[in-house]
Nucleic acid binder design. Structure first.
Lengths: 189, 189
DNA sequence: TTGATTTTAGACTATTTAGTCTAGTTAAAG
DNA sequence: CTTTAACTAGACTAAATAGTCTAAAATCAA
């Protein structure tokens, strides 16, 4: 299994854009990071934007589905499944340290570029759908609106991860998110 | 009361950086936005970075303290005060549309620049302190950790505001944040 | 092996970037 | 009115930016 040039590029761009943002990452930084010449880069991608959109689809999306993978943490009770997924996030060091890569790019690019907005929202909607389907076949108090609850869960996790990157820690995340867990427990039927 | 050049610059930079980010805002964009020559800009600020740091201190900070101003919404019960403050956020159109300006800049700059990290964290800590002092003289269940609760409130509000700028609305914010309000109510002693 | 295709290589270009510099203008202070 | 200081004006510079282009090298199919 060889490590293709295209994969090398996508990995480097993922890493650099995650930390420096889209506008904070230059083509030269990317070339240096993965030691390839410019010709190769523009052989695989027709522009910087196309390249980063590819990263969204081929790197960020799978990571998001994996981070919040609900099948792997399935419990008998749907609330317990959610709680396990939320706790599992704390084990991903990069998430705790730098926040959610999708949320970061979303904040930078969605207000100024429709293509990013669409690509990112697609992932967001699927995540929300995944959460919803877990919540639906659970034992949740029937007068709770599940759609807004799914949204609330994502918003709270993202928000907790976004508090001051430099001073973040697993412990801080767990302390914050503990309130979400308490709330979820209170919704059990 | 005259509208000084310096104020004009700070207002323009606030607006442009809010939407386009630090790296997405060029000096030329700023000059165009407020129709002043380059010489004036560099007369008042020695660099782009100094200028945006001034915006953080003189524009973003006051706005944050105002957005979440707890004195103006004071109720008898501290939980009710918090709830009113959280609901008041929905009335600020720019917040609902583009998210929290402090959080946006924080995500872009804190991981890559210590000066921004410090300036932003100072504001964050003061906000947290303001919230804490309200929570403390209230009727909250004594085994609730107030520090992490304050953090949870900020994280949840910021997270709710950051969900897909383009598709945000007052209604969506209120739906999401309603779960936070339910949780806060459940903490009453 | 041969011929075609894909991939690498990096010099080059046009534009944009932050920031400098000097001369001119306006306002304030005496 | 005069002198000094604050401010405006924008041409200019050096570096960085995204992207182009042509030629060479490696890979693949016959």
């Amino acid at each position: 299994m060889k490590y293709s040039t295209r994969d090398k590029i996508l990995d480097a761009v993922y890493k650099l854009v995650y930390i420096n943002g889209y506008n904070g990452t230059s083509i030269d930084m990317i070339l240096k990071e993965c030691s390839i010449p410019k010709g190769s880069l523009y052989h695989y991608f027709k522009s910087k934007k196309e390249m980063v959109l590819a990263v969204v689809k081929e790197r960020i999306a799978p990571k998001m589905y994996e981070f919040y993978d609900l099948k792997k943490v399935k419990e008998e009770d749907s609330i317990d499944t959610m709680i396990r997924a939320i706790l599992k996030v704390s084990k991903k060091e990069e998430l705790v340290k730098f926040g959610c890569p999708l949320n970061r790019l979303n904040q930078e690019m969605s207000p100024v570029d429709d293509d990013f907005d669409k690509a990112i929202n697609l992932i967001y909607e699927r995540m929300k759908g995944d959460i919803l389907s877990v919540l639906r076949d659970g034992s949740i108090n029937p007068d709770v609106d599940l759609d807004s609850l799914a949204q609330f869960i994502i918003a709270t996790v993202w928000g907790s991860l976004s508090l001051s990157p430099k001073h973040s820690s697993k412990k801080r995340y767990l302390n914050t998110i503990n309130h979400l867990i308490n709330y979820l427990k209170s919704l059990k039927h």
